[in-house]
Design a protein around this nucleic acid. Sequence first.
DNA 1: TGCGTTCTAGAATATTCGCTT
DNA 2: GAAGCGAATATTCTAGAACGC
Lengths: 173, 173, 173
Amino acid sequence: MRCPAPFILKLYEILEEGHDRNRIVSWNKEGTGFVVWLPDEFSELLLPRYFKHNNFSSFIRQLNTYGFKKCATNRWEFQHCKFQNGNRHLLQEITRKKCEPSVFPAFLKASSSEPVCGVVDESSDLLLQENENLRREKLELQMQIDQYKSLHMKLSDSLSQYLGNQNQFRRTC
Amino acid sequence: MRCPAPFILKLYEILEEGHDRNRIVSWNKEGTGFVVWLPDEFSELLLPRYFKHNNFSSFIRQLNTYGFKKCATNRWEFQHCKFQNGNRHLLQEITRKKCEPSVFPAFLKASSSEPVCGVVDESSDLLLQENENLRREKLELQMQIDQYKSLHMKLSDSLSQYLGNQNQFRRTC
Amino acid sequence: MRCPAPFILKLYEILEEGHDRNRIVSWNKEGTGFVVWLPDEFSELLLPRYFKHNNFSSFIRQLNTYGFKKCATNRWEFQHCKFQNGNRHLLQEITRKKCEPSVFPAFLKASSSEPVCGVVDESSDLLLQENENLRREKLELQMQIDQYKSLHMKLSDSLSQYLGNQNQFRRTC
DNA sequence: TGCGTTCTAGAATATTCGCTT
DNA sequence: GAAGCGAATATTCTAGAACGC
């Protein structure tokens, strides 16, 4: 891949231009993510300069599309492991999530609507099912990890609050 | 059904109280829907008075949950056939959308009841082994997660002990 | 289908508003199509009022997407059999061309070109791919766990530093 | 339980770019 | 300034899913 995705590049530029606008949006302390401090001003002033809209929700949708995660409960702070202040070369590793339904659900949809076809024999059918189970279980694993990650975030948040602005506990990933 | 859903009732009251606030949100001309003219003011001033948040997106989510549709491309105008100015008695017909179980699981259940046929060709056999491996490895992942979860609990416990009765960590983590 | 596609509706409205703008764009004599007389003015003045761009080529792309055909060699005149002056009710019959690429995934693409006996092989092949995907995704899970484990360690380290030599966190967490 | 709040994803349309003819 | 199309990204609207009360 040659250069970062357009959205990613624009997002980085918004943060690079900084200065006075840092009251609206800025990198977090560790440079491992960014915070939209004033969503209204961000939407009205900055979004139209870089994109073809001024909707905060559309901006959020793009962040999620590229795998960013909201990492604070009381701020519009987002992180992506490849999105770091000063590491412009990492940007090109941030890619859109494949909506690859992974061949499988699509196939099942098709066969469920046309069961008469019977193009796959029984053993293959069982294998299909087995793989489907594996996929589902892996999703559950993912959920557990995510949930646990959320726990970690809350713990960090509470710590920062309790210990004041010594935000050494803010997540560094 | 006795009375309208809480959300629906609050939405109606917001519009009923009208007066000066009509510059922020109001019924449309025909009284067949409503327009949020100033989303920022709406979110900051009105939402907290009626709900436990000030997020416009959460408000939108509720509208969709109850079947409202956005009906203009350049305004935040929403309609629901049972939501009309002056027809308060219709409100109780506005209900949450039920999440249908989707055809998908049904299909899997059906095919899972089939017995193993016995005739399995070579490639399918390999696939079976492969799946077994995947299953085992996933178990190991699960163990790691559980172990890590335990670590997190110990950390939280130690924290609440050390920090005294500021049990914010037991509560939130 | 309820209402016309947004693009179609906007196109019709552009022509309805007529008057002085007819020197820029208008219905043809018979009302069976329309002519963009002045592409530059059209792009600069009218497009931004209705769309999120001012590119004539993007406008053309949309026309083609909905099945309009250029029907003159020396003018920007386009026609679609369902797009006629005065017949607003026909607009909803104008739909996008490509219909079902998402409904017909890899499996059906493969099986559509192969006879039944080949289909099983294809499906086994897809199963192989599927297992490969599962393996890869599980690796990603492992990476997430490892990364998270590292975070936990950092948090513990910071805590024991901040809280002094009460190394209960290093020992137990 | 059902409802509300939050974060993320699905799905359809829109915009851009480049290829084919 | 030829015309049309495939594909990738962008924008919009709605829904899924987890969780708390």
